[in-house]
Design a binder for these strands. Structure first.
Length: 420
DNA sequence: TCTGGGGTCCTAGGACCC
DNA sequence: TCTGGGGTCCTAGGACCC
């Protein structure tokens, strides 16, 4: 049996935990650059505010319904996520952190009654430790646990827990579920399924797996098997390391000059490399991409990328130099650029990197010591205390973030104040 | 005015080999 | 009308997720 534990309205809930005046109010959280809505409280949802709608379109609710607006605050959400996950790991075996607000866990070998009891206990504990409400779905496979979780959220009489083990009654649930709402099925595949007369999850479950594989892919065939209760997606090992890593953002305003884009890229490289260090990994290929704003149809469009390969390294100076070279390759003047970013791929654990031919030479040793010092200083005083000089310069690239709440849990100067 | 950011997995098709 | 056949490896891009 697999449980899926999912935080309710996670970003909005994080805001409400530290700003009690927001509790029970309609609240939305905006994307980077304050462009659109990426999270909503229940009350905001009831107003009919959709996921992903433009910020401009919700302004009317600010006056009419006292809608509260916050820019996204990833420092806060990341820290709250860790607290939720740590609590889950205390209570359940084999927890797989699946996303910032979701985790799978193995809950095999329990009766239905015990499952309900355990899940309710987990809900109370997480709420007590963090102030966050979670919903829990349990079933034979990950895909079914996802479906059960959806029900746990929608039916208030379930009190946040849905055990989807009865084939008969769960069949009815699947019948009411559109294929688009199944985990792993997006708009494209859903439309294609409709073309074959498959409209709901039950119909998909009962389709011939071999035929599905032929018409679609092995991925969708697995979904069919999972819907039948045959587990194809196992719980992932926690220490499995990532394979690629990226960092990029859209600019606060369009940029035309190479020299204005450089500081942004340097910043993103530094950010990406800091994460590389955290996971004790090195990269041997770096890609820089640069693009205009695809939503502005009237301006000339351009989107390009360039890659540089090298011996595996985690040296931020070397990587930034490579990134800047790649940027020079992709940059072409005459366009209004909107976004730049960097991808590090072919990541490998630092331990597994073959010794370089030049390992013993003084230069390498010294650069290694330099990196060690930079890592220590930035870990202690903040990520950008020591940065490449090319990070200075124009800061026009910085995104808008007008309504960001304080980093309540990760910054000494922004701790919440309690008035006794 | 404003249109997110960071990931994974799979497949098709090209290059190359014998 | 014909232009082999089958294998491997790599990359770009698609589709999806939260």
């Amino acid at each position: 049996m697999i449980a899926l534990i999912d935080c309710n309205n996670f970003f909005a809930s994080c805001e409400q935990v530290f700003q009690p005046q927001l509790a029970g109010k309609p609240l939305v959280v905006l994307s980077n650059n304050d462009g659109n809505v990426i999270a909503r409280s229940c009350e905001a949802r009831k107003l009919g505010i959709g996921m992903g709608v433009l910020t401009g379109s919700v302004r009317e609710f600010v006056r009419s319904h006292e809608l509260q607006i916050r820019s996204s605050n990833y420092a806060l959400y990341g820290d709250m996520s860790s607290r939720v996950m740590e609590t889950l790991e205390l209570l359940l075996p084999n927890v797989e952190r699946y996303s910032i607000d979701e985790a799978f866990a193995d809950v095999s070998g329990l009766s239905r009654e015990l499952l309900v009891e355990l899940c309710q206990f987990v809900r109370r504990r997480v709420h007590r430790h963090t102030g966050i409400q979670v919903s829990i779905g349990v079933a034979q496979t990950k895909t079914l646990a996802k479906a059960a979780n959806r029900l746990a959220k929608r039916r208030s009489e379930l009190a946040g827990v849905c055990i989807g083990t009865e084939a008969e009654s769960f069949g009815k649930t699947l019948e009411q579920m559109e294929t688009r709402d199944i985990w792993g099925i997006g708009g494209k595949i859903s439309r294609k399924l409709t073309g074959f007369g498959i409209h709901n999850a039950k119909q998909l479950r009962d389709a011939d797996p071999a035929w599905i594989k032929k018409q679609f892919s092995v991925v969708l065939m697995r979904t069919v098997l999972e819907l039948r209760g045959e587990s194809c997606l196992k719980l992932e090992e926690p220490e499995e390391s990532r394979k690629s890593l990226m960092c990029g953002r859209s600019f606060g305003k369009p940029l035309k000059e190479l020299e204005d884009i450089r500081p942004a890229l340097t910043h993103f490289v530094q950010n990406a490399v800091t994460r590389l260090w955290k996971y004790k990994q090195a990269t041997s290929a770096i890609t820089v991409y640069l693009s205009t704003n695809r939503f502005r149809k009237k301006i000339a469009q351009r989107s390009a990328s360039a890659s540089v390969e090298m011996e595996a390294t985690d040296n931020v100076i070397q990587l930034n130099a490579a990134a800047q070279r790649a940027l020079e390759q992709v940059f072409k003047s005459g366009f209004e650029y909107h976004k730049v970013g960097v991808l590090l791929h072919d990541l490998a654990s630092v331990k597994n990197i073959p010794a370089s031919l030049f390992e013993t030479e003084l230069g390498i040793t010294r650069s290694h010591d330099l990196m060690g010092a930079v890592k220590k200083i930035n870990a202690k005083f903040g990520r950008y205390t020591v940065a490449s000089a090319s990070a200075s310069g124009s800061s026009d690239w910085r995104a808008r973030s007008k309504s960001r709440s304080p980093a309540f849990t990760t910054c000494w100067n922004e701790l919440p104040v309690v008035h006794a």
